[in-house]
Structures are given as structure tokens and as C-alpha cells.
Design a protein around this nucleic acid. Structure first.
Lengths: 410, 410
DNA sequence: TAGTTAAGGAATTTTACTTTACAAACCGGT
DNA sequence: ACCGGTTTGTAAAGTAAAATTCCTTAACTA
């Protein structure tokens, strides 16, 4: 009959069934968002806020209540007319797990859909292989879920933060130099079957950035970057509340920033490179560099970056000099990022955020000499908690989507 | 009665009039997009593609046709059954003007809503004041509109590309060092009253990036940057087809990239700066730097960047060396951008794009030594036309939105 | 206790979609 | 030339969901 032997199934419509109750879903979504934003709130107020009619609000809210997404919370009394029934989002509609797999600590937290932490535990990360680290994390997660009095099936979603760039297509982590075996493919699938939830794996600096956006120094900021300096150098970019991941998830990997050619333009003769040597800025800015700088200025003995900062705080001059130099180098990093991205705000985390009292002043001064662009600069509001809180916040967002989608379609 | 003397106007609904025919608008929008994507196309095919029913498609398409947004274009004959009436977007529903105010040329083009150029003119930019430049541009625009046989009122929107960063809030251009008087506030208002259309003012590198996205080397690419090197250094970032403007519109101003500290970490004593001198990479990479490099390698006489490239193409060794050095420096710029943004593609324009045959090889080789990230690198597909075509393409997008919105709401 | 004000809900109308049915138009074959 | 097969476009009927209108209920106020 037709060309092929098998009658070709109609191509799936470019717009999947727009008309079967989609408007209803949209309205329910709008109402749920509004309840989240202005809880506790009455049906009548919702109608005024959204422009929907009262009957529509009522039926939609009934549906949301039956689905367990919102719940009545009390009566608004004291005003003139009839008392209003107030509603709020039901945080027990689902729970999430956030995990921070750091180089020395593994932290796990459980939260409800409001983002309230119900339980958490930290454990020293002594494992040095991918398998044991994964086992520690899942074990800890199960413990914490039990601590919160939840069954594992109540958990809707898990977000794991770790160093490196997770390549979703290949299901493996790239550029995670310090975690042996961590680059083996299939990580996500293993985590999902071990935890019994969906799992997202996200770079730790990116999660920290999202954490600062949701509850730290970057709350509500439409475009900011989170820069962390510690063992290495990392950055997360948050634009309009969402991560800017780059084409392969590697946006913000400023450890790969190259060292620029000398400003003096005196090129050598022939093939002698005008670039002094190839290398990454990471070596020049990370915690080790602070120690190296302090040694070069005459400090002796067993030194750590923290020790140098503490000494500088006590007024020890070589340490203070090393700190000033670190501020200079950091200013270069921030200036480079600023020239490319033009963020409104730069949040400093990691070791830098912890020593912002010393670094911020000279850093901003150096920055102002380097570029006419003037982003606000602030210290992290969450400190070491940033990654974990970011994981939880991201998981909550995803879980909210999923719970609503399940109600609307399933 | 209520608290305040003036009864407070109800807050505008958070969701602006969801009620009145929203679903209809959405469907009409979907249909119009589909007609644009697959013209010429029949009502029956539209129904199949969108998942809407045939009657719905018919009534919506009637509305679009009455509004002048689509038009019947012929009959599909030769197939099995009844001949189908075919529709296409009506490009005469509105027209746009694109203007490229460059340092030496002012270019103007008029296009219809399909983006087809109807007329264009270029004129040498001899003006050196803001006022005369503006007068030249508006004069040229009016001429070109007349050339196209249009009345000025047929033009819906104008987009102007120029150096610098347009600050929408302050209505003035910042960082446009080479255009005296161009930073005076009120530019947009003056242009709008002079041209009788709405006007957008956009950085020229950003427009070139959009041009490459719509019809150049970056067609359909979800994340790419356009880097232009000429008198200065500029960049535009396109993510998901839209410009990434940054917090103040200055994203991509890589002329402000700082020169990094020396990689050798030997900090000096006391306050002697570890940063050799403050300065911007722009000086080290722009066209002038090519000439300086060539002189340093022994070339004499009156030199231009173009001359150096031509000489290198003829095999003159000092020139070839200068080009290699330029490629090295350019690789540093690209590596820095890549570390921050992780683009899928880097499009090279301006003088670099014109000499991609010489630069691309050594540039990518140097890039691969600087970073493990490997963005694709390509030469501009539009050359000197990029800014103008980008202005037109952007104006077409805005005009399409506006024309449809006018039909849906007005 | 009566009056005022606002909330919630029922009945009705409006809008805009789908389904079903059908006439019109085109092709190919006899 | 004409007829069956096939597809397009439209008309009529049916349905989902929202708006409008109107009414009851509940709380505070005088």
C-alpha cells in the first residue's frame, strides 16, 4: 500500500498533546509555585495573585491537596470577613539526599521538600579507591535516611557532589586527578541501584555555587560566580538560578586557565617561545602556592597554608607578604573571569573564603587596578557546608519537579 | 475603611491574564513556528506535525492569515488525494533595519521578516563626533528603506551594532574609547525618534556572534563564542541561540583580560609587585601587536597587519615568525575563555578570521598544549558582514515576537 | 443581635479543543 | 468520461476547563 512494508507509525507530534489537560497542569503549577512563595496563603488570595478565578483555584487546589502536594495549615483569623483556610506546600511529599564526597570528608544530609535538613552525618574519607568510597557514601546515606525516620523508598532523588567533571553521555567523571578509580564508567548506574533513587552527579564547585545561590552569599543574584581555592582551583557559574554547565560540563574549570605571555612584547628570535612555559594557573594560585611564597620570603619549618594565614593574622611579615601576593594572583583570576563573564558578584569560598578578612582588601585593590569592571566581591556565606547544602538544594529542585510531574501525568 | 486613605489598587496578577485565550495564543504560536520551519506546508500536515486536530489548525490558521502573518502560496498537487493548500509565513508582515556602526564604515541593510535583505548601502564613516555619526546612520537608514520601496512606518524594529557596552539602565555606551561623544546618555531615545522605530543597541562583537549563529559558522551550535581580533579584541557568547550578556552587558569584553603573573613563582621582596605591570591583553594580541612583532623580528618600512600576513603567506620568514607568535598569543586567549566557559565551538572573526589559513594550524597546536579542553575552532563564515547580518537577524527575531504579540493581544 | 465583609462553592456561560462525519478535489485506471 | 480510492478541508456535535454570577457561610464590629 504505502511505500514501506510496515506502515510507518505517525511521527510523534512535535508538540506532545498540548490540549489534554495541559492548561490545567500549567495552572496547578502556577498555584503550587505561588503557595511555595507565599505560604501560608488562602484560596482567595491565590486567585487574586494569579489572576485565576476563585472556582478554578478551588478545584486545582483540591487536586493538589488530594495529591499530597499542599496541605491546609490553619485559619487566617483576625481580619474582617470570613476566616480563610490557609495552605502551605506539603514537605512530606518527598525527601532527598545530598552527598558531598570530598578529598578528606564524606558528608550526607537528608532533607524534605522544603529543604529542611532532617538528619546529617559526616565521616572521614579514608578510602582511596572508587569502590570503597562509593560503599562508604551509600552506607552513610542509608544510615542518615534511617536516622531521619524515613523508609528508603520515601527518598525521591539524590545529588552527589565530587571533584571533576561528570560526563553524562559517557557516564564517567573526567579530570578528577586525585580520586583513583573514580573515572571508571557506570558510576551513576551503580549509585542508583545502590541507593534506590535517581542520582545526579555534579562538580563540587558547581554545587557550592548553587548552595550560595539558594542560601548563601548569592541569594537571588541573577549572575554570579563562586570561586574556590584550596588544594586546587574551582568555579561554578550561576545564571538566573541555574548552573551554566558549558558544552561538556566543564565550564568554570579555571584550574585550566593558562599562564599568559609576558606583557613585554619583545618576542625572541625564531622559534624561541614567547610564552615562557606552558602551565596552568592552578599551580600558581592554590594553597601550595601560598606555602611556596612564604618559604621564598624566608619562612621556615613545616608550613601549611592555614599556618601562613594565621601567622599573617598575627602580624608576621613574611607571611603577610605571602598573603598579599596570593591576593594579587587571585585578583588576576577574578579579573580574567570578569572579563569573560561579567558577573554581578564573585563569591569566594574554600580556603580563600575562610581567610577573606585578610585577602579581600588587597584582592579588591589589585582587581581595581586590573580591570574597569567592578563586580561585587563577597566571602562565602556557607563555608565548608556549601557543597552539601548545594547538593540538597539542587536535589530539592529536581524532586519538586518530579513529584509534580508524577501528579500531573502519572 | 481599609488601612490607607487610598484604596490600594490590587497588585497586578503575578501571572498576567492567563485567562483570555492563552491556549489559543500558544497554539497559534506553535503553528506559526511550524510554518516557518517547514514552509510551504498544508493544514493537514500542520495538524499531523503539531498533534492538534485539523479543525483547530484550520481556525487558528485562518486567524493567522487574517492577521497577515501567514499566506497561502499554492497547491500541492501530484500526490494521491485532494490537492492541499500550502501556507508560508508572510515576510511582508513587517520589516527591520540593521545598522553596523564601525570605526571606518557604516553599513545599513533592510530585511523582511524572513531575513531576506531587500536593500543595503555602505558608507565611509568619516564622522568623528557622535552627532554626525548618528546623523549619517539615520540618513543612510532612511535612504535604504526608500530604496527597498518601503514607507518608514513599515519598519518594525532597528538594531544598531557598535563598539562598547550599551548600558540599558543608564541609556549610554560605556568603554567605547575610540568614539568621542558616543558615551553621551540618551542615545537610544534619539535614535528611536529619528528612525521612528524601536531601537536596540548592541555590542558589535555580540551581534557578529549572533550573525554566525543564524547564518555563519555557528549555525545551530548550542554554545559557542565568537572571537574577533582587529584594532581591538572582542568576543560574543551565544548560548542556546541567545546572547549571554553578563550582568552589565559586558560579558565577552576580553580586551580587559589581565596579563597573568609570571609562572615562575619567585616573588620579589616586600612590596615589589609580583605582577610585572598592570595592563590588558588587548595590547598584546591586537593588530598592532602583529606589526610590533614583525618589527622586532627585523621587518622594516611602513607595515600593516595585513601586510605582515601577506608577507607570511609569500614565505617571508620574519613575517611568518610574527604570525606564529600571534597564533601563540591568540591560543592563550582562547584557552582562557575555554577554561571559564567550555564552549563547543570557537569562531574566529575580524582580522584573525580573514587570515585563518595561516593562523589556525599553529593556534590549535598551541591550544592543545595549553589545555585538555578541546573546543572546535573555525573561521568566521560571514567575514566583515557578520555584524550587519547579526543586527538584521536579531532585529528579525525581535520583530517576529512583536508582530505576533501585537496580533495576539492587540 | 444585627450589619458588614470576605471566603468558599454551586450553577451557568464562554472558550476552545476533539471527535465524528462529510463534501470537495485530485489521481489512476478502465 | 467516469468511478473508486485517497486525501484535504470544513461542519456539527460533544467535551474539558475556565470565567462569571450569585449565593451561603463565617467571622468581626458596632
Amino acid at each position: 500500500m504505502t511505500a514501506g512494508g510496515i506502515p510507518p507509525e505517525n511521527d510523534p507530534p512535535a508538540v506532545a498533546h498540548w490540549n489534554r489537560g495541559v492548561l490545567r497542569s500549567i495552572n496547578e503549577r502556577v498555584l503550587l509555585d505561588r503557595v511555595r512563595a507565599a505560604a501560608p496563603i488562602s484560596r482567595a488570595q491565590l486567585a487574586r495573585d494569579t489572576g485565576l478565578s476563585k472556582p478554578t483555584v478551588s478545584t486545582a487546589l483540591d487536586a493538589l491537596e488530594r495529591a499530597g502536594l499542599v496541605r491546609a495549615v490553619g485559619l487566617e483569623t483576625g481580619a474582617r470577613g470570613r476566616a480563610a483556610l490557609l495552605y502551605e506546600p506539603d514537605p512530606t511529599a518527598g525527601y532527598v539526599v545530598g552527598i558531598d564526597v570530598g578529598r578528606s570528608w564524606i558528608r550526607v544530609a537528608v532533607a524534605d521538600l522544603d529543604g529542611r535538613l532532617l538528619a546529617r552525618q559526616d565521616r572521614h574519607n579514608r578510602a582511596r579507591t572508587s569502590a570503597t568510597m562509593l560503599a562508604t557514601a551509600t552506607d552513610l546515606a542509608q544510615t542518615v535516611v534511617a536516622d531521619a525516620g524515613l523508609t528508603p523508598t520515601a527518598v525521591v532523588h539524590t545529588v552527589i557532589g565530587c571533584p571533576g567533571v561528570y560526563d553524562r553521555a559517557a557516564d564517567r567523571i573526567r579530570y578528577a586527578v586525585n580520586l583513583p578509580g573514580w573515572g571508571r564508567p557506570g558510576l551513576r548506574g551503580r549509585m542508583e541501584s545502590a541507593l534506590g533513587t535517581t542520582v545526579d552527579i555534579v562538580n563540587d564547585a558547581n554545587l557550592a555555587a548553587l548552595g550560595e545561590y539558594h542560601s548563601g552569599a548569592g541569594v537571588g543574584c541573577p549572575l554570579f560566580v563562586y570561586v574556590t581555592v584550596g588544594t586546587g582551583l574551582g568555579m561554578g557559574i550561576v545564571a538566573d538560578g541555574r548552573l551554566f554547565p558549558g558544552a561538556s560540563g566543564a565550564a568554570g574549570e579555571i584550574g585550566f586557565l593558562p599562564l599568559s605571555p609576558r606583557p613585554s612584547d619583545r618576542v625572541g628570535h625564531g622559534a624561541s617561545a614567547p610564552v615562557p612555559r606552558r602551565g596552568m594557573l592552578e599551580d600558581a594560585v592554590s594553597a601550595d602556592a601560598v606555602v611556596r611564597g612564604a618559604r621564598a620570603l624566608g619562612m621556615t619549618g613545616p608550613l601549611t597554608a592555614k599556618g601562613v594565614f594565621d601567622a599573617a593574622r598575627r602580624g608576621v611579615e613574611p607571611a603577610a607578604g605571602a598573603v598579599r601576593h596570593e591576593a594579587q594572583r587571585l585578583a588576576h583570576v577574578v579579573a580574567a573571569v570578569t572579563a569573560v563573564l561579567d558577573p554581578e558578584l564573585v563569591v569566594l569560598g574554600g580556603g580563600i573564603g575562610a581567610n577573606a578578612d585578610l585577602l579581600m582588601g588587597p584582592m579588591t585593590a589589585a582587581l581595581h587596578e586590573l580591570t574597569p569592571l567592578r563586580p561585587r566581591v563577597a566571602a562565602s556565606g556557607l563555608g565548608e557546608e556549601a557543597v552539601l547544602l548545594g547538593a540538597v538544594a539542587t536535589a530539592v529542585s529536581t524532586a519538586r519537579e518530579r513529584v509534580f510531574a508524577h501528579h500531573a501525568q502519572g
